[in-house]
Design a protein around this nucleic acid. Structure first.
Length: 376
RNA sequence: GGGGGGAUUCCCGAGUGGCCAAAGGGAGCAGACUGUAAAUCUGUUGCGGAACGCUUCGGUAGUUCGAAUCUACCUCCCCCCA
């Protein structure tokens, strides 16, 4: 057991008797992370609208950065020169960098894929760049995150079985090449399962990636616009095939209820832009469901965003004030809302961990849904 | 006192005989957002139940088959010269 723990740097603390949920500890060079965990997305070396102290004070121990964005600007060499991303952005806890695989999907009109890699046009200045497994590992090693991701191809929804299979073959080859190219022992390289919405491809991909024996395994290719049930199926097909002694990371997910549901399927790590993006766009999470603070009905609502929240925003400001800030285009609106939304996620994930510890996750989910209502 | 330019739907502003309930922007109202090309994007915004009909482009009276667009007068605003 001990040798396995040191190999994966993941310690399984407790398994739920009700569901596939687990409690764990992920040891990284910069932080010990209690799982299940939600990781805020900081694509460009910043969680938009937040400063590092605020994130740390909320209790986030790991955040995301993005290889593609940081490579284009300011450049991984520059980041490397000041000692890596931790130093550059003055973040002393853990960082995970996404490999750019999602940009293969999201910037689809700006790229060309072949087996060797992906040719990209910069969304900033149109210049051409090539990403391939070796290059992506080199960049991620220069950036220096605690956890780095294999370069994968995130296929769009919908895709044919044939194309999804081709993309998965590439993703598998790239995973092997990433593993071979990876040289920094103080970084953990996670593999990524693809396979779209096809059960046979997902199972095949999960078994293939699992067999490569990465210190952690991710499920990619979801949250690309597919129906919720499809996402649920993908996790159901794959999660149990991934080594239970290693962390399982569901990439890009999700809503608060998604997180609860997928924890119950054995997922340990999540990241999602929703709390930050929705915050900037005027949508706020509350115990009783999401609200659009810009709606007229909040104009003279002098209560906090969420009556059951004790975050900085809710302790100090009213819905009416925050609505006013939005309508006025004031930057503080985005800050207060982002803080609140991230804090909401923090409360949910802490609630999940506590519920697993007490072995009452199912009850926790029911209580959450009774108040929160439909999932959005 | 003389000469010139204007008044358009909540605001700014286009439109100079029919294709105009009237471009575009703003504001308003609502919706979307899941490994962030996102402080973004979409819809909607005279009235009536929609096909369609009705009322509207400073005011009044005209010309015309037809006017926001042409004419006359009126009201108000701006600029220039005394």
């Amino acid at each position: 057991m001990n040798s396995q723990k040191s190999h994966t740097n993941f310690e399984l603390i407790k398994k739920s008797s009700q569901t596939a949920a687990r409690l764990g500890k992920l040891y990284t060079p910069h932080a010990v992370i209690e799982t299940p965990v939600f990781m805020p997305v900081g694509t460009q070396a910043t969680i938009k609208a937040m400063n590092q102290d605020e994130l740390r004070d909320m209790g986030f121990k790991i955040i995301l950065g993005n290889t593609y964005h940081l490579y284009l600007r300011p450049g991984h060499e520059l980041i490397s020169r000041i000692g890596g991303l931790h130093n550059f952005m003055n973040w002393n806890d853990a960082i995970l960098t996404d490999s750019g695989g999602f940009q293969v999907f999201s910037l689809s009109d700006l790229r060309h894929i072949n087996t060797a890699g992906v040719m990209f046009k910069s969304y900033i200045d149109g210049s051409s760049h090539e990403f391939n497994p070796e290059r992506v590992i080199e960049i991620q090693e220069a950036i220096g995150a605690d956890i780095i991701m294999a370069f994968d191809e995130c296929t769009p929804y919908p895709s044919t079985w044939e194309y999804t299979r081709e993309a998965a073959v590439r993703t598998h080859q790239w995973a092997e090449r990433c593993k071979a190219a990876h040289s920094r022992p103080d970084q953990y390289l996670f593999g990524i399962v693809q396979g779209g919405l096809y059960k046979d491809l997902r199972e095949w991909s999960a078994e293939f990636i699992n067999a490569l024996d990465f210190p952690g395994n991710a499920i990619g290719g979801v949250s690309v616009g597919e129906p919720k049930e499809e996402m649920h199926n993908v996790v159901e097909w794959t999660a149990h095939l991934l080594d239970e002694n290693k962390p399982r990371y569901l990439m890009g997910v999700g809503t608060p209820l998604d997180i609860i549901n997928f924890v119950m399927q054995g997922i340990d790590m999540f990241d999602c832009v929703l709390p930050t993006r929705l915050g900037r766009n005027g949508s706020m999470y509350t115990t009783y469901g999401r609200i659009n603070i810009k709606n007229a009905r909040f104009a003279d609502d002098f209560t906090p965003l969420d009556p059951e929240c004790d975050c900085y925003t809710c302790r100090n400001h009213t819905r009416a004030y925050i609505r006013h800030l939005y309508k006025s285009g004031e930057i503080l609106a985005a800050r207060l809302a982002t803080y609140h939304n991230l804090y909401f996620y923090k409360r949910v994930i802490e609630g999940i961990r506590k519920a697993i510890a007490e072995d009452r996750l199912v009850e926790f989910r029911n209580e959450f849904m009774a108040k929160y209502g439909k999932d959005d």
